[in-house]
Amino acid sequence: MNNLTLLALTLSVITIAALGLYALQLWRRIWAKEKAQAEALNTQRERIGGDLRILASSLLEGQLPLIEGAIRIKVLLDNYDSTLSQDPRCEVFHQLFAATAQVPTHAEWKALEKSVRRQHEQHFSALELQHKAAARAAARWLLDEALPAARQSA
Rank of each mutant, 00 (worst) to 15 (best):
residue 2 N to M: 08
residue 3 N to H: 12
residue 7 L to I: 06
residue 10 T to V: 12
residue 13 V to L: 12
residue 15 T to M: 00
residue 17 A to L: 01
residue 17 A to R: 07
residue 20 G to W: 00
residue 21 L to K: 15
residue 23 A to W: 15
residue 26 L to D: 06
residue 28 R to P: 13
residue 29 R to T: 14
residue 29 R to H: 04
residue 33 K to I: 15
residue 33 K to L: 15
residue 39 E to V: 11
residue 45 R to V: 08
residue 46 E to I: 13
residue 47 R to D: 08
residue 48 I to H: 03
residue 51 D to Y: 06
residue 51 D to M: 11
residue 52 L to C: 05
residue 55 L to T: 05
residue 56 A to N: 02
residue 56 A to H: 06
residue 57 S to V: 05
residue 58 S to R: 04
residue 59 L to A: 00
residue 62 G to M: 04
residue 65 P to K: 12
residue 71 I to T: 04
residue 73 I to M: 11
residue 79 N to K: 04
residue 81 D to F: 13
residue 83 T to V: 12
residue 84 L to Q: 08
residue 84 L to V: 02
residue 87 D to Y: 11
residue 87 D to Q: 10
residue 92 V to C: 06
residue 93 F to A: 07
residue 96 L to H: 04
residue 97 F to V: 00
residue 98 A to T: 04
residue 101 A to E: 10
residue 102 Q to Y: 00
residue 105 T to R: 05
residue 105 T to Y: 07
residue 106 H to T: 04
residue 106 H to Y: 13
residue 107 A to T: 15
residue 108 E to P: 12
residue 110 K to A: 06
residue 110 K to Y: 14
residue 111 A to Q: 01
residue 112 L to A: 03
residue 112 L to E: 01
residue 113 E to P: 01
residue 114 K to I: 00
residue 117 R to S: 01
residue 121 E to K: 08
residue 122 Q to R: 14
residue 127 L to K: 08
residue 141 W to T: 05
residue 142 L to T: 03
residue 145 E to M: 15
residue 146 A to Y: 09
residue 148 P to T: 13
residue 152 Q to N: 12
residue 154 A to G: 15
